[in-house]
Design a protein around this nucleic acid. Sequence first.
DNA 1: TCCTCATGTGAATGCTTATTCACATAAACC
DNA 2: GGTTTATGTGAATAAGCATTCACATGAGGA
Lengths: 198, 198
Amino acid sequence: MTKKLGTQVRQDQIARAALSLLAAHGLQGLNIERVAQRIGMVPSAIYRHFKSKDEILVAVLELIEQRLLGNVQAVYQESPDCLERLRLLLMRHIRLIRENEAIPRIIFSEAVGFGDPARRARLYGIIEGYLKQVEEILRRGQREGTIRDDLDPATVAVMFLGLIQPAAILWHVSAGRFDATGQVSRAWEIFCEAIRTK
Amino acid sequence: MTKKLGTQVRQDQIARAALSLLAAHGLQGLNIERVAQRIGMVPSAIYRHFKSKDEILVAVLELIEQRLLGNVQAVYQESPDCLERLRLLLMRHIRLIRENEAIPRIIFSEAVGFGDPARRARLYGIIEGYLKQVEEILRRGQREGTIRDDLDPATVAVMFLGLIQPAAILWHVSAGRFDATGQVSRAWEIFCEAIRTK
DNA sequence: TCCTCATGTGAATGCTTATTCACATAAACC
DNA sequence: GGTTTATGTGAATAAGCATTCACATGAGGA
């Protein structure tokens, strides 16, 4: 029989497996059987650790949240300059998405958008939290004088997301042919020039 | 019995019904029964006009393409100024999405992203076609001297999409609380200033 | 060593849903 | 009006999949 492991360990394994499967097969292709297989269990065993498939999706959302906020922490270490921090965050974000296509997928997916309103709210909270972090970097830049202070940080933070999203989608839809990293780099130059103090 | 109608008429009805249902219930909630009900038929009758559910999705994609390109045609009539055309296109686009949430939903959906590679390619073609139209407006602006000609139109066109997408997603995830139109308007100001000739 | 409890198993259940098919009927054409 | 053909109907099929449950077993404490 499969080795027995604690519920925290299993929950983590399950969430990771689900995220990885979402990337490979999409939400439609995510079923309990595949998740179980991935970690060497039998489908019913999953239910020892999660009450339902929906709960697994919530766990996946939290995993994504961790990774996004982890990126924010990292760029604070990597550079003291706010504009540079944003650039680094952009590059980390695009890498995160390229390594894990599931992220935009689950975020835009109707399972989250239409399902339990609480889960939808949770997702909104995650995105808002990330936006708040971006805003914070922008505000610091404004205080330092490197970023134009006539701009609304909240608006600019959403625009920042807009540098990444369409590139990520084109990359995915084109089956990897679209040069997302190049697009984001070029777009960053234009964006950066627009928000930097003249 | 239900009145009998030609296949072209039915195909159009079915595609429209599917688009509308996608907006209301998401892809998961789109089933043949609901589509049939919406146009007063019985599920099996759908198969007189489409070989499979997948074919219906393709028809929906084509409907979306029509509407996007229709917007482009319209703004050419509405203004002779390229920057103004872009602004109008942006506003039309956000309105299209607000009236029809299904559009981002189906575009980002894994049914399209992971299914038949041909369908994925079709979607890429649609987005590319729209981008080409935006690029064309940008190029005209460059020739006229209203838009900076040191910018790559392709890059800027993707950025243009980026003005809309995150706003649309936040609007959807927040259940309509996020002010997408306001965000897009404010973002447009910043974007416009960045690409206009100084 | 034994007990107990959390974890793993395999089979069964039940629901949803796409798809098919034999049959029915409206409409177009002669 | 009769014939033909495309379109609509209702029932049946079958597959996929989440979830449950009675039972089995490993691991840690007494």
